[in-house]
Amino acid sequence: MIKNVTIGQYFPGDSFVHRLDPRTKLLATIALIAVVFVSTGFAGFAMIAAFVLLTALSTGVHLKFLFKGLKPIMFIIIFTFILNLLFQQTGGVLLQFWIIKITTGGLKMASFMAARLILLVVASQLLTLTTSPISLTDGLESLMRPASKIGFPAHEIAMMMSIALRFIPTLMDEADKIMKAQKARGANFETGNIIQRARAMIPLLVPLFVGAFRRADELALAMDARCYRGGAGRTRMNQLKYGARDLIAALAVAALFALVILANRFCPF
């Protein structure tokens, strides 16, 4: 019923990318996103796409999962594509009928925007597919730590994030169970108009929220019982350490950056 959600789904593995420090992966992902915006032509996109695909292949993650994340935003991609196609009126006319005029400039702009969106999503998917939620939040906390000097609650935010991530599958499981239980009592979640469907969600949402609050309460108690008192003075079992492979990864991303800038300069596409 509620399955196949890939955003934020970790794919266990032992590849070069999997073993990178989560901070490296976070920063590299930010750099990849930046480079997608820096690129002004298709040559740059081709390089980024090649880089992302090669990295993905090296991780052993099935490519199917890489592109599954595109599904929820497919609508936005298509919408942007059509909008650009219709309203960008530069270059030679390709096709004209009635009030619709499609130009080479429009086609180019539309494909450019669509490619940019696809690359953005696929590149960030790479991060969540190869990094476990725990090490992801560890990395985030460590990156945010300098800001805690000015009172930014880095540890607390990271802890909240890891708890939230930890409970997504649990709550989905629970939603699935409650849905089954209510269906067994003749509930109907699939048909009816929008108001009927919204009403049909009540038997699902009430127990789900009650359960979430109960779990939150229990978890808070369990954390208290183990003397949790926030980030101050807390040490960690797994210290994050940069290694040689992180340097290699950084160099690879830097090289991609340089290549894309060169492509912007010298390649007309």
Binding site: I178, A181, G186, P203, V206, P207, V210, G211
Partner: peptide
């Protein structure tokens, strides 16, 4: 009729009566 594990977590209505009536109403 299917009673799942820990079925008490599926209760949602305001009163006991209404909750029991959910199935027959459907």
């Amino acid at each position: 009729g299917l009673v799942f594990q820990y079925p008490e977590y599926q209760l949602f209505e305001e009163t006991v009566e209404k909750d029991i009536a959910f199935g027959p109403t459907n």
